[in-house]
């Protein structure tokens, strides 16, 4: 039996009157690129904090590569790299010092191998020119890169990125995803939380959606898209005839939407609209996307 990269069993966590985690069960296999999605306050960061040992669950059990995060915390933490959501840094040190210190915290002795790995991370995240700059002097995007580098400095098999691209420019996003994809291809397990659903859709093989501390959807990205979402046909027309054929009026004047599962539904619909004398000015076909899945799952589980 393969040891799970992360196993979360019946985890509960309450802060005052707020039940942040309400019986979360989750297993992430080694090598997965896993997405953890949910609205603000859904419990994503609490779950990540519990996995990283920053938060102590009231009940339940969490293992990383088979090591219990409480009972065997040393072994568990060696297997895990976490990129925190907040843009935090130590203002006393340069980028290289920050990485060397972080490697030391994980027990890694100074050596040529450590130096080479730090150089490689700096290079991959386009930080080489800033290696000797003080953390205080870096831009927000550069600080975010250093946070990613810190999480990788001990080469953990499991990497958790808590909204790593929040407020960063396109260039960094591309550099970051290129690097993270490479790590995943090399065998690292990646867990990602993000509000950019397009990123999650492109990157993650499997996705869990959290709402009010519970997992309300958990499946492969492909299955989620096919089960919860459909293609859409959008038309800009003169006249209100599309309403007769089951199309929904959009907020923007003249636009109508129709959702469909099979492409052969389109032709008969367009024929009926033309026959009714309606002039079509513009036509768009939209693919299923994670955003519509997310909205639907959150609405469906509104009372969850």
């Amino acid at each position: 039996m393969i040891t799970a990269a992360i196993r979360v069993e019946q985890v509960f966590k309450r802060f005052g009157t707020v039940q942040a985690l309400n019986g979360v069960d989750l297993t992430i296999q080694p090598g997965e690129f896993f997405g953890l999605l949910g609205p603000n306050g859904a419990g994503k960061t609490t779950l990540i904090s519990s996995i990283g040992g920053l938060s102590r669950p009231d009940a339940g059990r969490i293992e990383i590569m088979g090591c219990d995060v409480q009972a065997n915390y040393r072994a568990a933490r060696r297997q895990l790299g976490v990129v925190p959501q907040e843009l935090v840094f130590d203002p006393f040190f340069s980028v290289r010092e920050t990485l060397e210190i972080q490697a030391g915290y994980y027990g890694i002795d100074p050596s040529r191998a450590r130096q080479a790995w730090i150089d490689e991370i700096l290079e991959s995240l386009d930080l080489t020119s800033k290696a000797d700059a003080n953390m205080r002097s870096l831009s927000g995007g550069m600080k975010r890169r250093v946070l990613v580098a810190q999480a990788l400095v001990h080469r953990p098999p499991v990497i958790v990125l808590d909204e790593p691209t929040a407020g960063v420019d396109v260039e960094l996003r591309q550099t970051l995803w290129q690097f993270v994809r490479r790590l995943n291809q090399e065998g690292h397990t990646i867990v990602l939380t993000t509000h950019y659903l397009e990123e999650a859709e492109n990157l993650c093989g499997r996705i869990a959606m959290l709402k009010a501390g519970r997992i309300v959807a958990l499946d492969t990205t492909r299955n989620l898209l096919s089960h919860f979402s459909s293609h859409s046909l959008r038309l800009h027309t003169q006249g209100d005839q599309p309403a007769q054929f089951g199309m929904t009026k959009e907020d923007v004047e003249g636009w109508w939407r129709f959702s469909f599962a099979q492409f052969d539904e389109i032709e008969p619909l367009l024929a009926r609209i033309r026959t009714a004398g309606c002039v079509i000015n513009e036509l768009e076909i939209g693919k299923p996307d994670l955003e519509s899945v997310f909205v639907r799952v959150m609405q469906d589980r509104a009372c969850a």
Partner: peptide
């Protein structure tokens, strides 16, 4: 995956150094 040379006391020494 983690093939870097490690020593259990390095964490303590690094925190002290920092």
């Amino acid at each position: 995956m983690n093939d870097l040379p490690m020593r259990p006391s390095r964490g303590f020494l690094t925190l002290l150094y920092k």
